[in-house]
Write a protein that binds this DNA or RNA. Sequence first.
DNA 1: ACTTTCGGTGACAAAATCTGGCACCGATTT
DNA 2: AAATCGGTGCCAGATTTTGTCACCGAAAGT
Lengths: 239, 239
Amino acid sequence: MNIRLRHDAIVRILRRKGTSTVDGLAREIGASRRTVLRDISALRDQGFVIHSETGRGGGLQLDPNSMQTTARLSVVEVFALIISVASMRAAGSLPFSDLADAGLAKIEKGFSGDKVRDLRRLLDCLYVGQLSPRQDISNLGAIGPELLPAFEAAFLQRLHLRFCYRDAKGVETIREVEPQAMLILPPLWYLVAWDAGREDFRHFRMDRICNPEIVQGAQFRRRHVPFEDDVCPFSDMPR
Amino acid sequence: MNIRLRHDAIVRILRRKGTSTVDGLAREIGASRRTVLRDISALRDQGFVIHSETGRGGGLQLDPNSMQTTARLSVVEVFALIISVASMRAAGSLPFSDLADAGLAKIEKGFSGDKVRDLRRLLDCLYVGQLSPRQDISNLGAIGPELLPAFEAAFLQRLHLRFCYRDAKGVETIREVEPQAMLILPPLWYLVAWDAGREDFRHFRMDRICNPEIVQGAQFRRRHVPFEDDVCPFSDMPR
DNA sequence: ACTTTCGGTGACAAAATCTGGCACCGATTT
DNA sequence: AAATCGGTGCCAGATTTTGTCACCGAAAGT
């Protein structure tokens, strides 16, 4: 029997029975007492909290709060999860937001140094807030999934982005910009960028952007920090 | 050298050098060519995207988008993340929702059998939708974080829940209920439950619930499926 | 056409690791 | 004092992992 399957079996039995002895586990699994004890030790090393009591009527007990899983996530996947949690928190009344944050913190802790740098660079570009009630949200379009890889490359590698923009009057223009930040005011998303053609900072509603493409080789010239700190929901994350 | 350390070393070298040959890796790590090839295969199984080109000038190349991290999350933490993603998707216009879903799917894949069962049981109780515009959302209160452990135990172990409920007129009553489902209509959250005292199904606004406590030993008597399938945003998850 | 370089596979013995039994310790209950 | 129960060190045997070798197919230079 595989070592991994055995560990799973032990956790399953402990969960079901609540309390069990080492010998009972060994009999049920079909492994030796010694092996079960080694497995218990390994499970504790992996972060499972297993209480034990010696003597008559004693046994092992699995702390239900320590049931865990592992996952491998890329930087942008974590970023997407962070956007979800932050955006929901901004929408208010999220009883599980603390828990989701704790989960994200665990995920972030698993990153190595340069991945953390990537993540921070993305987070530095993200601002989530509340939409002011007087804002016009008519003609709300969908944001295309093809925007994601373009934004990721632009933000992480600091490259120019060229796209077609349809403004509020319906006029379409080609823009070449240096992306600076992403502003989320649910349900609206904005790209804050230095417009190279107009030589000024502009806000672009993301549902009005189409056909984004990376411009290779163009250097960033501007660095813009357009918002106050308290708008950013990630003050508690290390940066 | 440990197998895990070797995998980490391979990923580190590939990241740093960009491109490398199998023999180069073997020399640098101090393992045999065959072992490195086995490791590459294992890494690909784990989800790393490693491109390879044969012939002169070829070699291995790690896709930078597959740089990953590991994390250990509990069932409820994953549940909280799922709520965030689903709720945000219900709010509309989420360009990264697909990515967040992919991340969640990876997390869910890391669960062992009984944890998946727990997660499904929680998901079966969750419904996210759009609030109808004519709904009254005055007197919106905060949902206390102390509700979470109570709900988790109630849903997972199918135990009775007793709490103090303040209805729309401000009248407070003690209820003992069998929790059936959680309904999220942002920004409002409802608990759908069988009210044991009134012998009928009731909706409770979660910001009006206080001091929830588990009632040990009470058996569930009802099973309620109050919503159509299309309200549930998790149709693509295995269940 | 031929050679070299490179990823990838199968087979098999050697090396490393895991497993099981054993003796034994300390704590707790009967 | 006896029985129950978790925990540790030790060592031979079972199991898995590793290294070696032969070999294949693809690409690129000669």
